[in-house]
Design a protein around this nucleic acid. Structure first.
Lengths: 218, 218
DNA sequence: ACCTCTAAGTACCGTACGGTACGGTTCTTC
DNA sequence: GAAGAACCGTACCGTACGGTACTTAGAGGT
């Protein structure tokens, strides 16, 4: 298989271009800026094509989510044997990646869109976002901490609980604040380090945590 | 001054009734269900009065947030001397209260509204929510953990960091999931206990944490 | 050279919403 | 009891959007 074939061929190049333009409109103008007429004008296509390809406006929104998620594939790097340092490094990389994804323009815009629609469409878009969008991140972290447990580096009873602890330590209320429009974004590198430090203090086997004093939160 | 004057006299009884009806419409139907005509019909008032009282639709939304926040005042209980058990109890109560507030119908609806508007109004509503809405909760928790530190029961360098750690441990991604429309809500009592346990493991002075094994996340 | 299919561009329709204006009714105040 | 304010109900206006239909231009295929 070629490199390109990994990308789902769900959308033709023309459709992809239109969806990319739709995302651009959504990011810069929000929900209201994404009108069928406006998209048709901006993407130089006809409204009729939009309805032919995506059915209706909701179909377009769903396609936008699907399209965006087909673009951001996370790299699953593994193979190294796990040591305490390697585990810590991977956790910190994961934390930084997570913060970067959550604070991305497109991610924020799509989450805002899905949240705005959640009252009307039975949270269909919301389910799409959490199911297909963050599941990759979730699985990657889940695999990481499971491997940490198998290697005797982490100690916890429930993997899901441990992951949600990690997630909470990393993100805290940053995601909601950003969704609400708060501009100031703390340096995610330091935040990631602190979160992993706290996580290892909680779930790490003794000796995994290097610093003696407990490091806390963002 | 009369007893009533303690309550913010910002809104007349009639206006309060209308705002309450507006919140009800928003909760049950979302953004789109809250139209000026619909509110006028549901609240048995005229559109002209709405515009006279609140200026325009944005003014109405701001008034709804202000009105809701004038209703949910948190109780600031204190006075007891802090012991490890009292601190733990207060933290757990705070955690349960926080989860209850965040998962409330009106809170979710208003947060969805503010998030939806954040692209358009320069996140004015979002700022209103975080500034006036959660600040009470924040201060209460902040005072609690500061008191815990003064009593030698907690150990941390930065109070804000410690609070955000606590917040992350309690909430994790629950808030965003609920905002996205996820229906299944875990029992917040157990979740609160686990979060406080983890927080005390991280920031508590030795002996504060009762159970030996680290409890993690939700 | 002709046909067909696709899609762009445009014009159009119905609807729904924000905001305004006006007539009528109740309540207060002198 | 008259003057006036507050306010309800409704009708109205302009606009903007979602969705549909129609016409035209180009790209293969025969």
């Amino acid at each position: 298989m070629s490199i390109q074939s990994v990308q789902p061929a769900e959308f033709s190049p023309r459709q992809s271009a239109v969806l990319a333009e739709a995302l651009r409109l959504l990011v810069e103008g929000g929900d209201k800026a994404l009108t069928t007429a406006g998209l048709a004008r901006a993407a130089s296509c006809s409204k009729e094509s939009l309805y032919k390809w995506f059915g209706d406006r909701d179909g377009l929104l769903a396609a936008m989510i699907s399209f965006q998620q087909s673009k951001v594939r996370t790299v699953e790097r593994s193979g190294e044997r796990l040591t305490a340092e390697v585990l810590r490094d991977h956790l910190e990389v994961f934390a930084r990646d997570l913060l970067e994804v959550l604070s991305g323009d497109v991610s924020l815009a799509l989450n805002r869109l899905a949240i705005g629609q959640s009252s009307r469409d039975g949270s269909k878009l919301g389910r799409m976002l959490v199911e297909h969008g963050r599941r990759q991140l979730d699985r990657r972290a889940k695999g990481l901490i499971d491997a940490g447990k198998r290697a005797g580096l982490l100690r916890f009873s429930d993997g899901d609980q441990a992951y949600h602890t990690l997630y909470g330590l990393i993100v805290s209320d940053l995601h909601v604040r950003m969704l609400l429009g708060e501009p100031g974004l703390k340096d995610n590198g330091i935040q990631a380090k602190r979160a992993v430090e706290a996580f290892l203090t909680l779930c790490g086997a003794q000796g995994t945590s290097t610093s003696g004093t407990a490091a806390t939160g963002r």
